[in-house]
């Protein structure tokens, strides 16, 4: 049984995507007062679900993508909505925590299997 059979590779991709999304949210929040700034977003989960839904699909085939999102802009041409960014930030942190906790418990299972205790 390879480590990927434990779903570690999917968790790793998920944590990578969450870390990247955190950077993107930081960028949006840092530029909340920059006139003309366009909000960035990370697209990943939908693509991942599509690939994993197909037979023999590997999580390595999907890479998180940073896209410029067009939304209603303020008078200064900025499209960042601080409330939404904070909501996304909380959601993203929870996603990361869930993935890292599952990964940690998978590793713990492997470790106890190896040590035989």
């Amino acid at each position: 049984m390879t480590p990927s059979a434990f779903g570690i590779d999917v968790l790793r991709r998920l944590m990578d995507a969450a870390a990247l999304r955190h950077q993107v949210i930081s960028q949006n929040v840092a530029n909340v007062n920059t006139p003309g700034y366009r909000r960035l977003a990370v697209e990943f989960e939908d693509e991942l679900a599509k690939v994993l839904g197909t037979a023999g699909g590997s999580a390595d085939a999907v890479a998180p993508k940073v896209v410029v999102e067009d939304r209603a802009e303020r008078v200064d041409g900025n499209t960042v909505d601080l409330d939404r960014e904070m909501g996304d930030l909380n959601k993203n942190t929870l996603l990361f925590q869930a993935a890292s906790q599952i990964a940690a418990s998978r590793f713990a299972s492997m470790r106890s299997a190896i040590s035989g205790r």
């Binding site: 955190h22 949210i25 909340v32 930030l89 925590q97 890292s100």
Partner: peptide, 29 residues
């Protein structure tokens, strides 16, 4: 406005810390 934006950035930095603290236990045996 500046003070709210400052708070938002601060919150962001705190969440970064939380995420990394969560990821570090994976290294622990």
């Amino acid at each position: 406005t500046a003070s709210r934006a400052y708070e938002a950035n601060l919150r962001d930095a705190q969440q970064f810390r939380t995420m990394n603290e969560q990821a570090l236990p994976i290294l622990r045996s």
